[in-house]
Each structure stands twice: as structure tokens, then as C-alpha cells.
């Protein structure tokens, strides 16, 4: 029971640190905004006050988007790692992002809108994410080694990016511009009025994940042993597919592709918490994932004057070496 003490400590400490990081994230932008302006922006909003306008229309949405993106991608990564019993799995390396990106590219670059304007991009990305998820789950049955799943994911990523390049060449300048901006990835693209919908999806995904804690704990034993303990494997796969596609599609639609967060954070969480109890792992991934992306975004804003770094570039800079680290640890 020493184990659970360690976890309790970890959760208490990170719950204390998290608000500090969030506060730092709010105040780090170029224009200084006082605490009272933040307070007024929520409770006594005056749209003629520039500081309050900035806080309400830009800082808060960006904070929430960073938390949702970090936490959601981490949770999606954890689910895929547990399902595939593979520490190298994640929404990005398995091509779930690529599926969403491909659909967004087709929509933005050809000008074909699959759905009405407001939910158009989200629905488009969600369909791409679902399709990629179903493809991956049907392929996984044929693969024996953990690395080959990763290779298939990367090949799928290359394949979709080839199609995207082809679309880019044959598209009009204006469409190309809007797609390029989207594909750079940004946490600032979200509007205040979209936040409630995003939070609704986000909370729904977390509740679904909490409901499959028992199947997740059993899956650690492998699919065979888990099903002999009464696990309904097909049902569990579908729920995991729904959650990961939901999170990945949603986040990709708003922020563009964000690489490696979904791979690195679940590994870091397991190493820090030293547990396979998914109730604790879900909490850990939510906290560490959102803190991690907040810290990345703080760094981006700090160096904003010297260099405009897209979020995807920074997470790749940190994440790609981490994958190599995990590979070396696994394969030695």
C-alpha cells in the first residue's frame, strides 16, 4: 500500500502546481493584464476595456484549449497504449491525426464542404479520425511485433501527407493559405463561443474513459488473458475507438496536428506514478498532459518576439527524441 501513498502525494502536489502553471500561462502574453482585469473579464465584463477584452477573447480560450489539447491527446495516447499493449502507440504515430488532417485538407483545399459552416471542420476531422482509427484496429490483428504497428502508422502518415501535397499543388492560392495556417498548429484559433462545445466533448470523453477503467486494467494482461477473465473485448475496442477519435478529431480540427504529446505523456505518467491502475493513470494523464502543453505554450509565448514557433514544431522537438529514448529502453 506504499504505492497508493505515492500516488496520493503525486496527485496533491500536481493539483497544487497546476493552478500556478495556468496562472503563469494567462499572464505570459505580450501585454500585461492585472488579476483584477481577469476577474472582471469573467464577472463584470466591459468590452471597451482592452485588457479585459484581451483576457476574455484570447487568453482564456487559449488556456482552455491548451489544457483540453494536452489532456485529451494524453488520454487518447494512454488508451491506445493499453489497448495495443504497446508503449509506442499514440494518436499521432498511429496515424489518427493523419486521418483527421487528410479530411481537413480535402475540405479546405478543394473547397468541398462536407457539413454546414459552424461544425463543418470539426465533423470533417472527426470522420477522418474515425476512419483512420478503424483502419488501424483492423490492421493490428495481422501484426506480431510492437514496432511493426508503429511502422504501419508512419507509412499511413506518409501516404496521407503525399495526398495532401498533391492537393496543395493543385489548389488555389487562397485555399492553400488557409490550409497552411491550419496545419502549422495553433492554440489561438479557438473562439470563446466554441469553448462550451469543446468542453462538452471533452467531459464526455473523460466520463467514457472512467467507465472503462476495469476493462483497461484487465487489458494490461493482454487481450487473451483479459477475455478469459470475462472482458468483452469487441465492446471495449469500440469505446476506446470512440474516445480516441473524438479527442483527436476535435483537437486536430481546432489546433492542427500536434505530434508526440499523446505518446510521451502516458509514458511519463506511468513512470512517475509506477502503477497500472487506470483510474489513477487517467487522473495523472489529465494533469500531466495539460500541464505539459501549458508549459510548451508558455515557452512559445516567451520567445514569440524572436521566433514564431508553431506548437507542433515544439512538441516534435521534445517528443521525437523521447520516442528514441523509449525504443532504446524497450529494445536493449
Amino acid at each position: 500500500m506504499i504505492q497508493s501513498q505515492r500516488i496520493n502525494w503525486f496527485l496533491v502536489v500536481s493539483l497544487l502546481i497546476f493552478p500556478l502553471i495556468a496562472y503563469f500561462h494567462l499572464t505570459v502574453g505580450q501585454q500585461a493584464i492585472s488579476i483584477s482585469d481577469f476577474k472582471n473579464a469573467i464577472f463584470a465584463y466591459d468590452s471597451t476595456n482592452t485588457a479585459q477584452l484581451l483576457a476574455r477573447e484570447f487568453r482564456f480560450p487559449r488556456l482552455i484549449m491548451a489544457c483540453v489539447a494536452g489532456a485529451g491527446l494524453s488520454l487518447a495516447g494512454m488508451l491506445m497504449q493499453t489497448l495495443f499493449n504497446n508503449p509506442l502507440a499514440g494518436p499521432y504515430v498511429l496515424g489518427i491525426n493523419s486521418g483527421a488532417s487528410l479530411m481537413v485538407a480535402i475540405s479546405l483545399l478543394t473547397g468541398i464542404q462536407f457539413f454546414g459552416t459552424n461544425f463543418g471542420l470539426i465533423s470533417t476531422a472527426l470522420i477522418g479520425a474515425f476512419a483512420a482509427g478503424i483502419l488501424m484496429m483492423s490492421v493490428v490483428g495481422f501484426l506480431k511485433s510492437q514496432v511493426s504497428l508503429l511502422l504501419v502508422g508512419l507509412m499511413f502518415g506518409s501516404f496521407t501527407s503525399a495526398i495532401v501535397s498533391f492537393l496543395e499543388i493543385s489548389s488555389k492560392a487562397e485555399q492553400l493559405k488557409s490550409f497552411t495556417l491550419w496545419s502549422m498548429g495553433s492554440l489561438q484559433n479557438v473562439l470563446l463561443e466554441q469553448i462550451p462545445l469543446i468542453l462538452l466533448f471533452f467531459v464526455f470523453g473523460i466520463i467514457l474513459s472512467a467507465l472503462i477503467v476495469k476493462p483497461l486494467n484487465l487489458l494490461v494482461l493482454g487481450e487473451n488473458a483479459a477475455s478469459l477473465l470475462g472482458l468483452k473485448i469487441q465492446q471495449t475496442r469500440i469505446v476506446i475507438l470512440i474516445i480516441t477519435a473524438l479527442f483527436t478529431g476535435l483537437i486536430t480540427a481546432f489546433c492542427g496536428p500536434i505530434a508526440f504529446v499523446g505518446l510521451a505523456v502516458p509514458n511519463i505518467t506511468r513512470i512517475l506514478l509506477k502503477t497500472q491502475n487506470h483510474f489513477h493513470l487517467i487522473a495523472g494523464n489529465l494533469l500531466i498532459g495539460s500541464s505539459f502543453l501549458l508549459l510548451c505554450d508558455i515557452l512559445i509565448q516567451l520567445i514569440e518576439n524572436e521566433i514564431q514557433l508553431p506548437i507542433n514544431v515544439l512538441t516534435s522537438l521534445i517528443g521525437a527524441p523521447f520516442v528514441i529514448f523509449v525504443l532504446i529502453r524497450k529494445m536493449k
Partner: peptide
């Protein structure tokens, strides 16, 4: 990261509720 106690506990899965 799976302790022996937690490993044995998974054997009770057929008898535990939906939350395990």
C-alpha cells in the same frame, strides 16, 4: 509497474462490479 498484489487482484474481475 504492476505489483503482485494488483496482479492477483485482477483475478477477482469476474466477481467485481463495473468499476472493478
Amino acid at each position: 509497474f504492476l505489483s503482485v498484489a494488483d496482479y492477483l487482484a485482477l483475478g477477482r474481475a469476474p466477481y467485481t462490479n463495473a468499476l472493478g
